[in-house]
Amino acid sequence: MPDRIVEMAGDKDAFDIRSEQLDVLDVEVLVWIVGGNPGAAERIAADPLYRLLAVARDGRDVFVTDPVVSGALTWGTVLSLPHAVESLVPLLSVAADRSARARDPSLCRFRRGPDEGQFSAE
């Protein structure tokens, strides 16, 4: 986790980020746990300032909208984490490949599948 985020969070597990601080979210892969907040993913993705971040432009952000997976991550128990990991690995893999592609476009290419959220390697 970037030092700046650690400093901003202090001893809390959640904190607010003001619009002028959004650059702190411009990381390799960003995971949003929003399953308990209907419409949050759409609101975040539509924010004009958020859309300026490379992580958003490159599609390296992952929105966990499933409330069960969000809950599994939030609770973080030995019983819930395997389910969360199983659900997230494919999404994180795509985001990580996009990160690699952002650094070196010759590494991999993706095309959108018939489902908006699915990608396949070319």
Rank of each mutant, 00 (worst) to 15 (best):
L25P: 12
A84F: 15
S70E: 11
D26P: 13
S87I: 06
V62Q: 13
F63E: 15
P67V: 02
D3W: 15
A56G: 15
S87R: 13
A100Q: 05
A46C: 14
R111S: 14
P48D: 14
V68R: 08
S87A: 08
S80L: 12
V6T: 07
G117A: 04
A9L: 13
G35M: 11
I5H: 04
A121S: 03
N37T: 12
A40H: 13
V24P: 06
W32L: 09
C108P: 02
P114W: 00
G76V: 15
V6D: 13
G35E: 10
V29Y: 07
W75S: 02
R98P: 09
P114N: 02
W75N: 00
D104H: 02
L30W: 11
A14V: 15
F119Q: 04
V29Q: 01
D16W: 13
I33G: 00
G39A: 08
G76C: 05
A95T: 04
D3R: 15
V62S: 08
A96C: 13
R43V: 09
D16L: 13
S70G: 03
L73W: 06
W75T: 04
E122W: 01
V64Q: 09
Q118R: 02
R18M: 15
A41I: 05
S87Y: 07
S19Q: 03
A41G: 05
P38Y: 14
Q21D: 15
I44E: 04
V62I: 07
I5K: 08
E7A: 14
G113K: 00
G76D: 07
F63H: 10
H83D: 04
G59V: 04
V85L: 14
M1Q: 11
D47Q: 06
V85A: 13
V55E: 12
W75L: 06
D97N: 08
R111I: 10
E122D: 04
E116M: 02
E86P: 11
P90N: 03
D66T: 05
T77W: 14
A41S: 06
